[in-house]
Amino acid sequence: MMGTLVVDILSWVLICAGSFFVITGAVGILRMPDVFSRMHAVSVIDTAGAVLLVLGLGLQAGSLLVVFKLVVVLGLLFFIGPVASHALAQAALQAGIEPKLDQDRRGQPVAGEMGLDNTANKQTNDAGTGSRTQ
């Protein structure tokens, strides 16, 4: 009796937290200014929202097969999410849509890049991003 109560409370917590993240992501899709920043809101749904909801449902599943199916659903979401975001970002950049940037560091030299002096720049050199590759 005690055991099922604990499991029920745990599912409630997980499902409520998952629902919060799902709604947050949807609100983010509405509020964000351009297509690139909206992708970040979508990844909140894809990761935190999905995993918390699925974990909460999984605790209530009667059989092991249902749990396994939930795990497969989760795995599918994880592989779809980043691949779709990446393809979307690339297609949007290709189509000439530029994100509204606050700061553009693309012109700065990357530590370890050919023909560039990587000691000249403090931003990219501070924590040794490229020093391991030398």
């Binding site: 983010g28 509020r31 964000m32 200014p33 509204k100 553009d104 560091r105 693309r106 370890g112």
Partner: peptide
């Protein structure tokens, strides 16, 4: 999530390159 619910939407989009 904190930034999405914040009334002034405190984002500062940045593009960068890493190795």
């Amino acid at each position: 999530s904190r930034r999405i619910w914040h009334p002034s939407l405190p984002i500062s989009p940045t593009m960068t390159r890493v190795r």
